[in-house]
């Protein structure tokens, strides 16, 4: 943190990303952006609008629709001294570049005995809610948390979106920054200058005394709304946002659970095999003697993301799903 007071103002999540990228390009000549429609069009979500005009097509680069080529280009550029920021438009598209991410990017440093440094940032957009159906809506963060060598970040608000992206780009390891497309219009206080939100540090978003909800990405807002509802049940809910899933700040989470004695993990990804299972396992390893109830999980059901608005509304977890699960854990009928 800087010691001087930073000028802040309310702006949107998408502007926070755009501003971070502009300031990173300004600050470091080795930073460049590339991806599909990131340059002339400014990104399909507007996260690089105007940057090609400002920094030129050498530093803000439109690529063909070739995800393996894009990620590979970042790897080769990073291995030779540059600091690439690449966009994989929708997270679902990682399916066509998994080898470059998992077998090349993540492992190169280790395989080469520490002699390769790969400061690659991959930005991508996850999440349902816009009726984009099964191939444009997934939350696949668990795949990458499972791969040693990668770091995985999921911001939940504009302030973290900018600060975590800056930290990711300045980090010397490969980082996936996974934003949720439903949050792009979210407003929040964002400092005007460059700042970092450190990787691997969770944040207690709401302090409470007798229940902990660990929530990621968009589920943080849903957890906060659930916490308000649960107040009527006599619960004083603490909400913890890990912010970085790999490395995971289990200490902050366990500290909260030792205080509240009950917990639930909420994410938008499919529940089975999701990162929630890992967090729950670590909670029982770190705080078993403090637990008064089984640790719950909220996630999407075990199906692809449906298209129909009627079905998608059932699919994506929300405040009601969280409230229901908390009450179930506590043995209360809904």
């Amino acid at each position: 943190m800087t010691t001087t007071a930073q000028r802040t103002r309310t702006t949107s999540y998408v502007n926070a990303i755009l501003e971070a990228q502009r300031q990173l390009l300004t600050a470091d000549p080795n930073v460049f952006l590339c991806g599909e429609d990131v340059a002339l069009y400014g990104g399909v979500f507007g996260t690089s609008r105007g940057l090609m005009a400002e920094f030129g097509p050498q530093r803000v680069v439109d690529t063909p629709i070739s995800e393996s080529g894009i990620v590979g280009m970042a790897i080769g550029a990073a291995a030779t001294g540059l600091r690439p920021v690449v966009e994989i438009m929708f997270m679902d598209f990682v399916g066509v570049c998994m080898d470059q991410i998992v077998n090349q990017l993540a492992k190169m440093r280790y395989m080469f005995g520490g002699k390769a440094t790969l400061p690659v940032t991959i930005r991508t957009m996850a999440g349902g809610g816009r009726n984009m159906a099964a191939q444009h809506s997934q939350s696949l963060e668990a795949w990458f948390c499972h791969v040693p060598g990668l770091k995985v970040v999921m911001p939940s608000n504009p302030y973290d979106a900018k600060g975590l992206l800056v930290a990711a780009v300045r980090d010397d390891d490969p980082v996936l920054v996974i934003d949720n497309k439903m949050q792009l219009g979210m407003q929040g206080e964002v400092p005007e200058d460059l700042y970092e939100v450190p990787l691997g540090k969770a944040r207690v978003v709401r302090e409470g005394t007798n229940f902990t909800i660990v929530a990621t990405s968009r589920m943080v807002q849903e957890a906060l709304a659930a916490a308000e509802q649960l107040g009527a049940d006599g619960l004083n809910v603490e909400v913890v946002d890990p912010r970085t899933l790999q490395p995971l700040d289990i200490e902050t989470i366990a500290t909260s659970v030792r205080k509240t004695h009950r917990a639930l993990v909420a994410h938008e990804a499919v529940r089975f095999g999701g990162i929630g299972g890992e967090i729950v396992a670590q909670i029982q390893e770190e705080a078993f003697d403090y637990l008064d109830a089984p640790v719950g999980r909220v996630g999407a059901p075990f199906s692809p993301v449906p298209f129909s608005p009627a079905l998608e509304a059932l699919y994506v977890p929300n405040r009601d799903t969280i409230v229901t699960e908390v009450r179930r854990i506590l043995g209360k009928q809904v």
Partner: peptide, 27 residues
Amino acid sequence: ADLDLGMLGANGIVGGGPPIAIGAAFS
């Protein structure tokens, strides 16, 4: 591999190298 010699690594994945090569060339 020997990055000091500009040798960016043998590769266990057939076809793993070409995307990395264009990255070095881009650089």
